[in-house]
């Protein structure tokens, strides 16, 4: 994605064009936030907070330090993590534990593989690698938390992240070869189920 247009909007203070930035990145950020908080209304509120915070702090974005999305993603993740650490979230979780029949169930944080589209390229990764990447990238886990969650040594977590990204690079940039292998693998799995 060519980010220059969006950076120009932020740097020119042209808030009337901010809708373009929203259109370009809201889905990606909402996907990350929703996977973390697992509540649509909360995720929607956090997404709006994130875009407001991005606008307010736009002068702090330094293109020399990384891509715009990376910076926006961190803001959104931090808001979601703050919410998960908040009293509001903890109280809500307690209420739902008391009467699950009345309220919408909020699942505890954990693997979200079932929320990934089967067509997702992430499905082409090995389970172990995909799980680690899912927790790290989509759910804001620290490496130590992933280690604890998956009962995996910290060194292995770091290796998994590196390998998962290396494999994804192959999937994205050498898509034909990897896809064919993955597709065959996927079809075989389906066939035997």
């Amino acid at each position: 994605m060519d980010q220059n247009e969006y950076i120009s909007i932020l740097k020119s203070d042209d808030h009337t064009s901010y809708g373009k930035v929203y259109d370009a990145y809201s889905g990606a950020l909402y996907g990350v936030i929703l996977r973390m908080v697992r509540d649509e209304s909360v995720a929607s509120e956090l997404l709006q907070d994130a875009f407001l915070k991005i606008w307010i702090n736009r002068e702090r974005y330094d293109p020399g330090k990384g891509r715009l999305y990376t910076w926006m993603n961190r803001i959104a993740k931090n808001l979601a993590l703050n919410y998960l650490d908040s009293k509001a979230f903890k109280n809500q979780s307690k209420i739902q534990e008391i009467d699950k029949s009345v309220f919408t169930v909020v699942e505890p944080r954990g693997l979200l593989v079932d929320t990934l589209d089967m067509k997702s390229k992430l499905m082409l990764l090995k389970d172990k690698h995909r799980n680690v990447l899912d927790l790290a990238y989509f759910q804001g886990y620290t490496q130590q938390e992933i280690s604890d969650e998956l009962s995996m040594p910290l060194g292995s977590v770091k290796s998994c992240i590196k390998i998962a990204i290396r494999d994804l690079r192959k999937i994205y940039f050498e898509k034909i070869e990897v896809y064919s292998k993955a597709t065959i693998s996927f079809l075989i799995t389906i066939f035997f189920m």
């Binding site: 259109d23 889905g27 875009f51 999305y69 390229k121 990238y137 990204i165």
Partner: peptide, 29 residues
């Protein structure tokens, strides 16, 4: 290269936010 890849993955894994969120964001800004 890594950032672009992760950005692409996030875009691929996008989930459509509620439609009213867009106007709310623009109004708040």
């Amino acid at each position: 290269g890594i950032e672009t890849l992760m950005e692409q993955i996030a875009l691929d894994e996008s989930i459509e936010p509620p439609p009213e969120a867009r106007q709310n964001v623009l109004d708040r800004v």
